[in-house]
Design a protein around this nucleic acid. Structure first.
Lengths: 226, 226
DNA sequence: CGAATATAATAGTATTACTATTAAAATAAA
DNA sequence: TTTATTTTAATAGTAATACTATTATATTCG
C-alpha cells in the first residue's frame, strides 16, 4: 500500500502522553526510535535509557513525553488502531455491496502489513510486528480500567463498532457481531505470531494466505453467506 | 467441578524449572503463593522478593526453583494446559458421538472455570484469571523460540492436535483445523477479559453464557453442522 | 527588549533482578 | 553410628532499571 493522502495525522487521545510527540522533532524521533528499538529487542528489554542513547537524547527528555514505557506502547497501539480505521474507511469507500465491504474489512485485518509511505516517522511493518507481539502488554494489566477511562481504547472500540454494524446490515439477527469482529482482529494477529513461532498451532496451505482465507471462511459461514 | 481423581499429578517439562516445585513443601508454597500474588497485584508488580515475604521465605530460595519470574509464569501456564487436557480426556471419555465430543471440548475451553479440589496447592479459579490476563507475557517475547525448543508448549500443542483430529474426524476436508481450535482457545480467554474490562468489544445476552454459545455457533457453522 | 514559559540535561534515589558465598540440614557411605 | 557428600536455604551483596528533583538553556510573547 502506498500513501493515500499526505498531510494526514492519526489522532491519539491526549490523555496518553504528557506532551504530544507529533508536536516536535524530538517527539517524532522518540516515536520512530521506539518502534525500531522495541521491534529489535522486545518490550521487556526496551528502556528509556537505551531509547535516549539511540536517538541521541536523554532519558529525562523522553520522560517529558511519556509517563513510562507502558504509556508509550499504548500510544503506539492507539496510533495503529487509528491508522487501521483510516485505511478501513478508505477501502470501503464507494463499494455498494455490504458483503464486499465486509470482505475488504477482513482482508485488512488479516493480511500482512506493507509499508505505507504516508507517515515519515512511522515504519508500519515494524509497528505491525510490535502490535502483534507486544501490544497486549499495554492493556493486559491491572491498569486497564484506568486506561479505558482516559479513552485509550476508543479507536479500537470504534473500529469494532463500525464493522459490527456492517455485520448487522448483512445479517440483522446475528447475535454476536462485536465478538465476531474483535475475535477476528485479535486472532489474525495471534495466528501471525503462531505461524512464525508455533506453526503446529496453525495450518499453512501454499498458494494462499491461510490466515486471510481462514478468517474469511469463518466469518462468512458464521453469517451463513454463500 | 469437583476433583476427579486424587493423587494425580500434572507433569510439566523439567526444562522449565531448576528444581521441581512439586518435590518439596517450599516448592508447593512457591506455586500457591505466586498464584495468589500474581492474581492480586498483576505480573508486572509481582517480584520474587514480595513472593518470598508472603510465603515467609527468601528471594534466593525462590531463585533455586525458577530462573526468573517469566519461567515461573511459564510453569503456571504449562500446568494449566496440562490440567485442561486432563479434564478434556475425562469429559470426552465414553462419548460415542464425535460431534458431542467436540461440543464438550468447546464447552471446556470457553466456560468459566470453577474450583477443582484435586490439587491442594493450586487455586484453579485464580490460575485461570492469570492465564487469561498474564500468560501471553510468558511467550510473547523474544525468547519464545528458545522456550519452544525446551518443550514449554508441548502440552498446548498436544491439546490443539487432539481436538484438531476430532475436527477432521467430523469433517475430513476442513482446511484449517489447527487454526480453528487455537483460535477458539485463545479467543475464549480474550473474550472473558473483554467482557470484564472492555464490554463494548463483546455481546452479552442474558440467560446464556454468550462466550460459550458464540464459540459453539462459530465452530459448528465453520464445519457446516446442523 | 525582558519576562515568562517550555525544553532538556545533570545528577541523583529507590527498587528490582539476579548472584556469589556461606551456613545448615538432609542423605548416603563407611 | 559416624563421617562424608550433597542438597537446600539464607546472607549480603552488585548491576541495572524506573523514575524524579533540580538546574541550565532555549524559545516565545507581550
Amino acid at each position: 500500500m502506498s500513501g493515500i493522502i499526505s498531510n494526514v495525522n492519526i489522532i491519539v487521545s491526549d490523555k496518553i502522553f504528557l506532551k504530544n510527540p507529533e508536536s516536535s522533532l524530538l517527539g517524532r524521533r522518540i516515536i520512530s526510535g521506539s518502534i525500531d528499538l522495541i521491534d529489535e529487542v522486545g518490550f521487556e528489554c526496551f528502556t528509556f535509557r537505551k531509547l535516549a542513547m539511540q536517538i541521541q537524547s536523554t532519558e529525562a527528555s523522553v520522560y517529558r513525553y511519556f509517563e513510562n514505557k507502558q504509556r508509550l506502547l499504548l500510544y503506539l497501539s492507539c496510533w495503529y488502531w487509528g491508522w487501521l480505521e483510516y485505511r478501513l474507511v478508505f477501502r470501503m469507500a464507494n463499494i455498494d455491496s455490504a458483503e464486499e465491504r465486509l470482505n475488504r474489512a477482513i482482508h485488512l485485518f488479516a493480511e500482512r502489513v506493507e509499508e505505507d509511505g504516508s507517515f515519515e516517522h512511522i515504519n508500519e511493518v515494524k509497528l505491525n510486528r510490535i502490535v502483534i507481539s507486544e501490544s497486549s502488554k499495554a492493556y493486559m494489566n491491572k491498569l486497564v480500567d484506568e486506561e479505558n477511562k482516559i479513552g485509550a481504547f476508543a479507536a479500537y472500540k470504534q473500529l469494532v463498532e463500525r464493522v459490527s454494524k456492517l455485520v448487522l446490515e448483512i445479517k440483522p439477527d446475528y447475535k454476536y457481531p462485536h465478538m465476531l469482529i474483535s475475535a477476528v482482529i485479535e486472532d489474525a494477529h495471534q495466528q501471525r505470531f503462531f505461524a512464525e513461532h508455533l506453526p503446529k498451532l496453525t495450518d499453512s496451505i501454499k498458494g494462499e494466505d491461510s490466515i486471510v482465507e481462514f478468517h474469511k471462511d469463518l466469518v462468512f459461514k458464521a453469517l451463513e453467506i454463500k
